[in-house]
Computed example of a mutant assay.
Amino acid sequence: MKNCRRERCIELFFLFISITALLILIGIFFFLFYTGMQTFFEVSPAEFFLGRQWNPAAYGEPSWGILALIAGTLMVTFGALLIAIPLGIASAIYLSDIARPGIRETLKPAIEMIAGIPSVVLGLIGILFLSPLIAQIFGLNSGLNALTSSIIVGIMVLPTIISISEDVLTSLPQEFREASLALGATKWQMIRMTLLPAAMSGIAAAIMLGLGRAVGETMAVLMAAGNSRAMPSSFFDPVRPMTANIAIEIKEVVQGSLHYKALFAIGLVLFVMTFAVNFISDIIIQRHVRKYKW
Rank of each mutant, 00 (worst) to 15 (best):
I164V: 15
F176C: 05
I151W: 09
T218C: 12
T160S: 12
I191G: 09
T160M: 15
G184W: 04
W188T: 14
P232C: 09
M200W: 06
S233P: 00
V221W: 05
I207Q: 06
S201L: 12
S233I: 00
P238N: 04
A214K: 12
F176M: 09
E217P: 05
S149H: 11
I162P: 11
R192N: 11
I151R: 10
L209G: 14
I203H: 05
A225L: 05
F236I: 00
T218G: 10
A179L: 03
I152V: 15
E175T: 13
M200V: 02
S228F: 04
A199D: 02
P159F: 14
M231A: 01
L183Q: 05
A225N: 09
L196P: 11
L183I: 00
R213D: 03
S234K: 01
V215Q: 07
Q189R: 12
T186P: 14
I191V: 15
W188I: 15
V221D: 09
A224L: 00
G154D: 13
S149R: 11
S150V: 13
S149V: 08
A205D: 08
V221M: 10
M200L: 05
N227R: 07
F176V: 00
L195K: 10
S165H: 08
M231D: 01
A179H: 01
P173W: 01
S150A: 15
L183D: 03
L172A: 05
I191E: 07
L195C: 07
Q189L: 09
M193S: 10
L147I: 08
L195E: 06
A199Y: 03
M193D: 12
P238W: 00
F235T: 00
A185G: 06
T218I: 05
A185M: 09
S163A: 15
M208R: 03
S201I: 02
D167L: 08
R192G: 07
A182S: 14
T218K: 08
P238I: 00
A205T: 14
S165F: 04
L211I: 03
P173N: 03
G216F: 07
R229S: 10
A146E: 08
S150Y: 13
A185H: 09
I207R: 09
E175P: 00
M208T: 13
A230Q: 11
S150L: 13
M231C: 02
A225K: 06
V168W: 01
P232T: 08
S234M: 02
S233E: 13
G184F: 04
I164M: 15
A220R: 05
V221S: 07
R229E: 02
A185F: 08
E166K: 13
L183R: 03
P173Y: 02
I162G: 12
I151Q: 11
I161P: 14
V157K: 14
M200K: 12
A220W: 05
P159S: 14
D237V: 00
N227A: 06
L183K: 02
F176T: 00
I191D: 07
I151L: 15
I162V: 15
V157F: 13
E178T: 08
M190W: 04
S228H: 06
S228A: 14
